[in-house]
Design a protein around this nucleic acid. Structure first.
Lengths: 168, 168
DNA sequence: TTGACATAGTTAGCCAGCTAACTATAATGG
DNA sequence: CCATTATAGTTAGCTGGCTAACTATGTCAA
């Protein structure tokens, strides 16, 4: 994902709109802004997680496991919830296993399945990472007042729900 | 970047907040929403560009070149504006050169520099891609009313400007 | 003028995504 | 009951990011 350090200003978009009359200046600006800020925050998050030898993928797996009552899940459901392929999940779990943050066991009911479980070391890792993560998120989001925040969420939710408009 | 198909609901975050009192439910929800929608739109854009054998990186280089009066730039400035390393830019330019969408010439003034120029084929490619891109962006953004759009941009701009709050 | 430092671009090698192809196991319907 | 189809997980090989190390050229100050 690009960082888009140099977003076009209205003037540049207007120049493009002369050649491409389909261009709507405000629409393009907001679209690019969403992409830009998404990348910003994603990079910032990765940078924080890297201090703990984690990246978004492996960190999110730990969180998904911690959400479960019994701290267990199968690779397939984890892949589905994280939005990555099962192949990628295999790789993420390999990494987590190497650091003993999770364990792998054959499931009893269905012998095709593997049960992934958050280990104590995995829980300890989260206990290290999460407080600083929540602090940073709180500090960052406190720069927007509560009403504006609600409106932003509303707008983003609408975009999320209509994202398939891009695929026609 | 993760797709975060399964965002936590307020109940889950509240459970986490019992263990991690730093957690602010609304802050976490907005933060993740920005990440999620950024990824959504990025994936959707890539999917559209892939129809034209482009991806965000190479597409953005073509746009940056088209913005220039003389359709020229050096790899360094392109890397800076696109927010990628110079090494990555070398790779992107290699790809574009192979399809003859740009040309490379040694600069006259400074013999370390290379001048990259948008070719006619490159301009033709943009003329193919951009109308559909602008149409899709317009259609998508039209789902948010204008006031809400302004508020979203305002909020995102504040977040962008404070992103370094994540690095302490 | 020349030694030290800075800058432009490339190369090599790493990493985390992906798809496609594979094995093993389970479910199902004729 | 067994042939077909579906599902779980892994492997191999591709891609586009990255950093670090390198070459070539330029700049500047003693």
């Amino acid at each position: 994902m690009l960082q888009l350090k140099d977003l076009p200003d209205k003037e540049i978009i207007r120049r493009f709109a002369e050649r491409y009359p389909q261009a709507n200046v405000d629409a393009v600006l907001s679209f690019l802004k969403v992409l830009q800020v998404g990348t910003d925050l994603s990079l910032a998050l990765n940078q924080y997680l890297a201090e703990f030898d984690l990246l978004q993928g492996r960190w999110w797996v730990l969180i998904l496991l911690m959400r479960e009552e019994d701290k267990r899940a199968t690779p397939s459901t984890l892949a589905e919830k994280a939005g990555v392929s099962r192949a990628t999940m295999t790789g993420l779990l390999d990494g987590l296993l190497k650091e003993r943050l999770i364990s792998r066991e054959h499931a009893l009911v269905d012998r095709r399945q593997i049960e992934i479980k958050l280990t104590q070391a995995g829980q300890d890792k989260l206990d290290e990472v999460m407080p600083g993560y929540y602090e940073r998120v709180s500090k960052l989001m406190a720069t927007i007042d509560s009403d504006l925040n609600q409106q932003m969420i509303e707008a983003l939710t609408i975009l999320h729900n209509h994202r398939q408009l891009f695929f026609n």
